[in-house]
């Protein structure tokens, strides 16, 4: 399979990338290319130019400041794993396989907005935001609003994601449970959980899911079942049941809607049992 013809641009700065993209309607930024190049090979897209942002060093960093982690958009999944960020690093470790993680970037995954991407489950519960830079300067958008629909990020032509920001959840316990058909595949369902206890009582609980909707979803009703309570097997079961009832997953090649609902319940129960009991 060969990609169609396209031109290629190597900018020296973010501003050069932004202005070239702005002036060329169907030009696309190229980060890790691990969603883009497969799409080119399948000829799903035919951009006029690819703008190689991958090597822009100023977008490769992980910093910790004021209770938040700031992650440069071009940070690879590999480097996210190494960064030791509560929940997010363990989630990144479950993406695809080592070779894909060596190349794919967090900014590329968020921009691609695949409804089954693993980061979707974690980012939706981490008070995350996305920093976007474009011809009109910089703006910050809540992650929950940034992904508008399936493969539809809040990005205009000429805009780039420069940073992902997540809260530091040190002091919490966390788990990411992923069910896949085979090693390295996208999730059938993925469940990310953050939990905090004070003595026997649950003081905070956050449950995020991927691959069950048009984007990552947070199961607030289910969280309420356990918050301010002492977790018992019954309550955990009820919370997992509530997750199942709150979603209407799609059916596709990987699984039927009904199967996904049940899988979401089982994964939620497993995560909660591991973290709370």
């Amino acid at each position: 399979m060969y990609p169609p013809k396209f031109g290629y641009v190597i900018p020296d700065t973010i501003d050069e990338a932004v202005s070239f993209l702005k002036e060329h309607e169907d030009a696309k930024p190229l980060a890790g290319g691990h969603s883009l190049i497969p799409m080119l090979k399948l000829r799903i897209i035919r951009p006029s130019y690819l703008v190689e942002i991958r090597r822009l060093k100023e977008l490769q960093y992980v910093r910790k400041e004021g209770g938040y982690y700031q992650i440069g958009a071009l940070t690879t999944h590999y480097d996210v794993v190494k960064a030791g960020i509560p929940l997010l690093s363990d989630t990144a470790a479950r993406i695809a396989d080592p070779q894909v993680r060596n190349v794919g970037t967090i900014g590329g995954s968020v921009a691609h907005s695949d409804p089954a991407a693993d980061y979707q489950a974690a980012l939706i519960v981490m008070d995350s935001s996305v920093v976007v830079y474009g011809p009109k300067g910089s703006r910050t958008v809540n992650f929950a609003d940034f992904v508008k629909d399936v493969f539809t990020p809040d990005l205009k032509q000429g805009e780039l994601i420069t940073e992902i920001k997540v809260r530091d959840f040190s002091g919490y316990r966390w788990a990411y449970k992923k069910l896949e058909r085979k090693a390295g595949d996208f999730a059938i369902v993925g469940v990310a959980v953050l939990a905090k206890k004070d003595g026997d009582k649950v003081t905070d609980l956050r449950i995020g899911l991927t691959a069950v909707s048009n984007k990552g979803v947070r199961a607030m009703e289910a969280e309420k079942v356990l918050i301010d309570r002492t977790p018992t097997e019954d309550l955990i079961e009820r919370a997992a049941e509530t997750v199942m009832k709150s979603i209407e997953p799609p059916s596709d090649l990987r699984a039927s809607s009904e199967y996904r609902k049940r899988a979401a319940k089982v994964l939620t129960r497993r995560a909660l049992t591991e973290l709370l009991r």
Binding site: M1, E52, D97, Q99, N102
Partner: peptide, 26 residues
């Protein structure tokens, strides 16, 4: 040819990659 099998794996600047999913210009 679809980034799944790893038969095309090479080391690129110290990291293993699937060379069917990397452009030569990159």
């Amino acid at each position: 040819d679809t980034s799944h099998c790893g038969a095309c794996t090479v080391m690129l600047n110290g990291r293993s990659v699937k060379s069917c999913t990397v452009l030569a210009v990159e």
